Simulated scan of single mutants.
Amino acid sequence: MLIIDSGIGGLSVLNNIKKNFPNINYIYMLDNEGFPYGKKKKKFLIERSIKIINIIKEIYPIKMVIIACNTISTISLPILRKTFNIPIIGILPIFKPAIEITKNKTIGLIATRATVNSSYIKKNIYKYSFQKTIKVIATNELAIIAEKKFRKIFISNVKLREIFQSWTVLSRQPDTIILGCTHFSFLKKEIQKIFYKPINFIDSGETIVNKIKKYSYQKKKKKIFFYALNTKKKYNNYYFF
């Protein structure tokens, strides 16, 4: 199984997969050379993801690919499925659970600019905005902050408050936030501190296990490989590149 993300965001997805499928062989690709994906053009993201899959396929007999990145999934998933004859599972921001659990009928979606501008997001916002109020923040900075936290680099609370300022000034703040990027799952505690009431976080990465179960894909041994496209810099047993 190949799991792809631009950085550490997909590690939260990997952890969920490991807990539920302990006998699968894993290859985790941190494409730090292409990070952050949220700033990249559609053409780059499509070509990049195809290139990564082809590189790994030449080395290992990949049976399934997990796109652990909302940006690539919202933009490239249909094309990837047409390009490759193996299961390609993506992670997409999910709206329905947020619609069901919100108490004050105000939902927040935070994602990269590329994800927010995708047709998938625009269609879902149009679909559900008739039922609830959906507030959107498009930012590429939060993924960078998550990477810094993982590397134990100081995170500025001032910067976080700037990102969420358009929500914190609302008289009715979102009580449910859809995390539209796997990186954001590492910042739940920091985000919660910004708001005066408890937040329900909708993390689409947690749904990936059910999607994998549909394919009933199992192997006997587990092995995790980390590959670099460019430089190799080791940090706590992970390779960043």
Rank of each mutant, 00 (worst) to 15 (best):
V13W: 00
K18I: 15
F21R: 08
F21G: 10
P22N: 08
Y26T: 12
I27V: 14
Y28C: 10
L30A: 13
D31N: 06
E33L: 11
Y37C: 11
K41Q: 13
K42M: 03
I46A: 04
E47L: 11
K51I: 01
N54Y: 02
N54H: 01
I55R: 01
K57I: 08
E58A: 05
E58C: 09
I62R: 02
M64E: 15
V65W: 04
I66G: 04
I75C: 04
I75Q: 04
L77G: 07
I79W: 02
G90P: 09
E100M: 06
T102Q: 06
G108N: 09
L109C: 10
T112E: 13
A114H: 01
T115I: 10
T115C: 08
K123A: 12
F130Q: 15
V136L: 07
T139K: 03
I145T: 10
R151H: 08
I153G: 04
F154H: 14
I155S: 09
S156D: 14
K159Q: 11
E162Q: 09
S166L: 08
S166V: 13
T168C: 09
V169G: 05
Q173P: 06
I177Q: 09
I178L: 01
I178G: 05
T182I: 00
I191P: 00
Q192G: 08
Q192R: 02
I194H: 05
N200Q: 10
S204D: 08
E206A: 06
K214I: 14
Q218P: 01
K220L: 07
K221I: 06
K222V: 02
K223Q: 11
L229I: 01
L229A: 02
K232H: 02
N237V: 00
